[in-house]
Design a protein around this nucleic acid. Sequence first.
DNA 1: CTCAATTAAATTGCTTTCAATTAAATTTAT
DNA 2: ATAAATTTAATTGAAAGCAATTTAATTGAG
Lengths: 145, 145
Amino acid sequence: MEKNYDMLKLENQLCFPLYACSREIVKKYHPHLDEIGLTYTQYIVMMVMWEKKHVSVKELGEKLYLDSGTLTPVLKSLESKGLVTRTRSSEDERVLIVGITDEGEALKEQAAEIPPKIACCVALSPEEAGTLYKLLYKILGNESA
Amino acid sequence: MEKNYDMLKLENQLCFPLYACSREIVKKYHPHLDEIGLTYTQYIVMMVMWEKKHVSVKELGEKLYLDSGTLTPVLKSLESKGLVTRTRSSEDERVLIVGITDEGEALKEQAAEIPPKIACCVALSPEEAGTLYKLLYKILGNESA
DNA sequence: CTCAATTAAATTGCTTTCAATTAAATTTAT
DNA sequence: ATAAATTTAATTGAAAGCAATTTAATTGAG
């Protein structure tokens, strides 16, 4: 009885194109992010900050699927650039609250120009992009399974 | 005139769920890959080796969307585990040919058990998985744009 | 109340990833 | 035939990313 190795082929795996695609698209952000002095990880942290203004490291981690091991150095770097503040919560000293500075707010202006530039070099129609979006969030939503 | 910041929201970006999804699924591989002593990157290199037997670093990089900066240490590590060989091409000394060893071939057996285990914890129907697959390769295929 | 368990973030150690540079071999143009 | 340009890997340096551990604060059980 012959064993079936088909699933072991790169082209039969869903994980691989996901992984490759993710890196290729993130790469497209680099030249634009360079202009505003952010890395991709710093950029997605700032995206949360532009929406929420104040957020604990834990909440940030849940939103971005990142842990404190990744976030701590990123947040320290954003703090040193003057874009966010890091303050311990007075109610619970374990909690670190990340806040946005005026300078951080101001950066939103320039950052807003990036997404349209990326969108136009991803070769999907709006419908396809919508479908992809839903499928990705379906996977993300089902972490427990 | 109010500027439109909607595209700056995390939930309106395609890149973010792609990035998060990729990392979450790769994470699911870890416990299984640990059992056969491979990292995810080593695993996808081995997937190419199981199919091709002999491949240059350049070809490997094109297939996996990785450069020599990433591949060189991974290949050295696989070589030290005895799973692949690294030999300079005699026709062109610049080219490094990666070959698979018997031990590398033998690992395929255990590796074949991994994909089914992953598949069943990704909450997509076969049709959805197919759609996702096509969309991802549509993006990957359009690198030039 | 006190000690154990839990929680949040930071730290450590390791692999990955990538941009940029370097080194060596090959190809091309003159 | 030789010099310039190109190609292939390797190297270097920096940021991510993650598992595992540690530290400090808080909560809970007896």
